[in-house]
């Protein structure tokens, strides 16, 4: 239910970056840390983060719903976010998307029945030189994708 002490310690470390009277400043990190622990941000988790920082829950919800890397619904163990923006589109991100859709049997914003994978469409990730690309769980960037490379990456993941 509540955040682990590890997560709380991480949030505390983020808080040291800001003046003590501006605890809200840490909400971006705190929500990320909570999401990393829980997999997604339930309303309870958001309220808990808000509580931890001493800010109104609605202020945390505003942030959680504004930035699109926060997940407000449960996602699979591996969330694959494929960039389809112009530079990736020009280098055929559509082929990567089709390949993933076929391979996983899901479309964007869907999760495989076994709860392993969720597919998301992303906006520009600022790595356009490596197009086409995706990142997994908001943390691991994979560039210069081809269908073969996608297969290798997926096989390399712990099931």
């Amino acid at each position: 239910m509540s955040l682990s002490t590890e997560s709380q310690a991480k949030i505390d470390r983020e808080l040291t970056k800001y003046p003590p009277e501006h605890r809200q400043a840490a909400v971006m990190s705190a929500l990320r840390i909570a999401q990393t622990e829980k997999g997604w941000l339930s309303k309870e988790t958001i309220a808990e983060v808000a509580d931890y920082l001493g800010i109104p829950a609605i202020a945390a919800l505003e942030v959680a719903t504004f930035y699109n890397m926060y997940e407000l619904e449960p996602v699979g163990k591996y969330k694959i976010t494929v960039c389809t923006n112009i530079s990736c589109m020009l280098r055929d991100s559509a082929e990567i998307v089709t390949h993933l859709e076929k391979k996983l049997g899901i479309g964007f914003n869907e999760t495989t029945a076994d709860g392993q994978f969720t597919l998301k469409e992303g906006e520009c990730m600022g790595c356009c030189g490596g197009a086409p690309l995706f990142h997994i769980n908001n943390t691991q960037m994979h560039e210069y994708l081809t269908p073969e490379k996608v297969d290798q990456i997926l096989e390399g993941l712990d099931k």
Partner: peptide, 19 residues
Amino acid sequence: MMELGLINRGEHAEITAYV
């Protein structure tokens, strides 16, 4: 007290209380 907020963004932005 901030009891209402504008959540989401762009065209989806909407006013709401917390849950």
